[in-house]
Each structure stands twice: as C-alpha cells, then as structure tokens.
Amino acid sequence: MSITKLETAPSVSAIPQTMQAVICHGPENYRLEQVSTPTPAEDELLMKVEAVGVCASDLKCYHGAPKFWGDENRPAWAQEGVTPGHEFVGTIVSGSDAALAHHRLQIGDRIACEQIVPCGDCRYCQRGQYWMCGPHDMFGFRNYDGAMAEYLIVPPKARTHKVSKALDPQHAAFAEPLACSLHAVERADIQFNDVVVVAGCGPIGLGMIAGAKAKNPMTVIALDMSDEKLALARKCGADVTINVGREDAVQLIKDMTDGYGADVYIEGTGHPSAVGQGLNLLRKLGTFVEYSVFGSDVSVDWSIISDDKELDVRGAHLGPHCWPAAIKMIESGSLPMDEICTNQFPLDQFQEALDLVGDTAGTSVKVSIIPGSDQ
C-alpha cells in the first residue's frame, strides 16, 4: 500500500462538510458512516487524522469485554455512538487563535494526543495524577470521539504533543503505545543488576523491551510464542528470547539465575496464563508489573505473592510523563519501526484491521488505519 503523508494543512475552505467515520453501536456492531465534519468551538481545534493504531483494547471493546461494557463489578467504560481509536497522529487544520495559543500550536502542526482527556478538577488531577482522573474521559471510548475518522476535535483539556513531520504516519501514531510501555517500565523501578523479563512481544511488549534495555539492567529476557516476534524483540533490545510454546520459561530463567528467579517481570500479553507464569519465575522480593487489559477473569494462588515470596505487585495505566521520551525514541530511528508497523489499512477496511489484530496466530505486529489512503 502506498501512503502519502500530509505535508501541509488544507485551507478552511477545503475542509469538507461531511466525512467518513466509524461509529460504535455496541459490541460487534461498528459501522462506517458518512457524518458531518465536526466544527471546532472557540476553545477547540480540528485535526485531520493521518493515522490511528488499532489496539488490543480496541478489539476487546469491540468484542464486548466487561472491562469496557460493564458488569456487576464495574460500570461501563465505552459508549455507543462514539468513534473508536485512541492511538493517533494528525495535523491541525482549524482553530481559533486562543485555542492554538492554549496548546502552543500553529495551523499545520502535527501532533499526537494522550488517550485520556483529564477533567483537571478531581482529587487525582489536583494531585498531579491526571492519568487516573476520576471521570476518566477517553478518546475513542467515552465522551470524546476517537480517530477512526477523517477529522477529529481536539478539546481544550487534551494533552497534546508535537511530532516530527518526517515520520511515516503509522510510525508517528506509535507514540501512544510506546508511552504506555515506557510507563510500565518506570513502574518496574529497574536496577542495574536486575534480570528483567517481558512477557509478550506485541506492540506493547516490544516497547517495554526497548524501555527496559534503556534502563541498562543486567539482562532483558523476552517471552513469546512466535519466533518472528522474538527475533524482532532482539532488534528492540532483548538479550535473551524464550519461545514459551516450546520451552519451560520458568525453569530456564531459574537456571540462568542460580535458582533464584528474575528480579522483574512485566506482563504485556493480556493472557491469563502469563500471570501465573510471572509469579512462578520471579525471585523472592521481586517486582511484578501488570499492564494488560484482560478479556476474562484471572485466578492465581495469592499465597505466592504474600507468604511465599512477598512480591511487589504494581499496576500500570496509560503513559503519563513518558510521551516526550517515546516520541524522541521513535524520531531517533533506534527502533525497527517498519518491522513493528506491519500492516496499514484504509478507513473503509476498518473491519479487516480489527480482524487482523485478533489473529494471534498471524505475523502482524502493529496494525494501523490510514484515513484518506487507498489500497
């Protein structure tokens, strides 16, 4: 597929009155529709979307996971009528002088936005913990349309970051998952002598590997069931790779560490079996970082966490304060971005993009949608 980057912003008169957008009408009911192009309010900006990544959480939302649609234990996170897509980059094509000044932007700037649109008023926002905002409005899930569309409104409370125009669109949009990966690495508090294990070599896991390697620990070990993804993990910084479909990762890692186990385990697969795997391969007093969104409940022996090993178990959510580092890493050319961003689709093939993300046996890594592109 040939993708043409948007080098200059269109004039206001060139912005069409209608556009194509994917609309969520509930689980497994997403439709491409012709809708009115949004008009920015005085405090908003209009972005022409260049690329939007398709995340595993997009797929789980599409299939109706309770995490997004609610159950007896949690309220719904997703809304019908919203356009999905939270990993995006685009060019600012319209907005008032006041709105541009608020974001320190100009017409024609290329930006990425953090997934969350924090309220600024709740306890978490007031304490500087904006990524855990109480209302938790999110592009592509709740109250703000996402980027599986030709244009998108950037609200005043969006957290925006400039991105180089020299990057391919799909590479630039990788800033969101990479920032999330780096936050998980920050939560791990990696030390120089640590043996760090990253479970999963998908887009998030590859970013975790690159981030962990940048912390300069003793060893970074990557786990996956795909030899192709493990080879890519080595290019992202893994020192050792283990195919968990053929090898006993727990025993191999204990053998490598004089029987003690790894110091840090970062879970990025979203598969229930990876949780027990991590608990078993960690040493006593080790650190377990959980990033994934799970499609079903996970059961483990909690006595491993407490009485057996006294583990530190930490969650990780979004990519707070990691966006500048993520963008810098992509712009530096240090990551094999062409091998990470494997598949791009035009907007009218959004369903094929979702289905490919769900094909775990396939060879795709990062799947993206490029609005305006042709097959």
Rank of each mutant, 00 (worst) to 15 (best):
G362Y: 10
V367C: 04
C322R: 13
F68S: 13
Q79L: 13
C119Q: 11
T241Q: 06
Y260L: 10
I92Y: 02
R159G: 01
D71Q: 10
I153F: 09
T287M: 04
L223D: 05
A166P: 00
I190P: 03
D168F: 10
V293W: 10
R159A: 03
A316D: 09
S2T: 15
L282P: 00
S306I: 06
G26K: 15
L354Y: 15
T360C: 03
M19F: 13
T257I: 01
L167T: 07
I111H: 02
N143R: 15
D97R: 13
G207S: 03
A149T: 13
F345E: 08
I204P: 06
C122F: 10
L318T: 11
G146Q: 12
A274Q: 07
D263S: 09
V300L: 06
G333Q: 08
F88V: 10
T18Q: 15
K284I: 03
I116L: 13
M138P: 02
D301Y: 07
T241A: 06
Q126I: 01
G85L: 08
D145Y: 11
G90D: 04
A175G: 01
T287D: 03
G207C: 01
K215P: 03
L347H: 06
K165V: 05
G140W: 12
R234G: 08
G261S: 04
E247H: 11
T363P: 00
V195I: 04
E247G: 08
P10F: 10
P40G: 06
V357F: 02
G207K: 02
L45E: 03
M337I: 09
L335K: 00
E228G: 00
N216V: 09
V89D: 07
H102F: 03
M256A: 12
R187H: 02
I209H: 06
D359M: 12
E42F: 08
G128K: 06
V196R: 03
T360K: 13
K284V: 07
P66T: 13
G200K: 07
A212V: 06
I209W: 04
R74P: 10
F68Y: 15
I369V: 14
R74A: 14
L354C: 10
H136Q: 14
S96V: 11
A175S: 13
I327W: 01
I190S: 05
P66Q: 14
A361S: 14
D308N: 01
W323A: 02
I330H: 00
V244S: 12
T241N: 05
K60I: 09
A158E: 08
M148D: 09
C180H: 07
M208W: 05
Q106D: 14
I23P: 05
I305P: 01
A99G: 06
V22F: 14
E310H: 03
A199P: 02
H63E: 15
S303Y: 05
E176T: 02
W77G: 08
G295T: 08
I330V: 05
E150V: 14
W69A: 11
A101D: 09
L32Y: 15
G276E: 01
P324R: 01
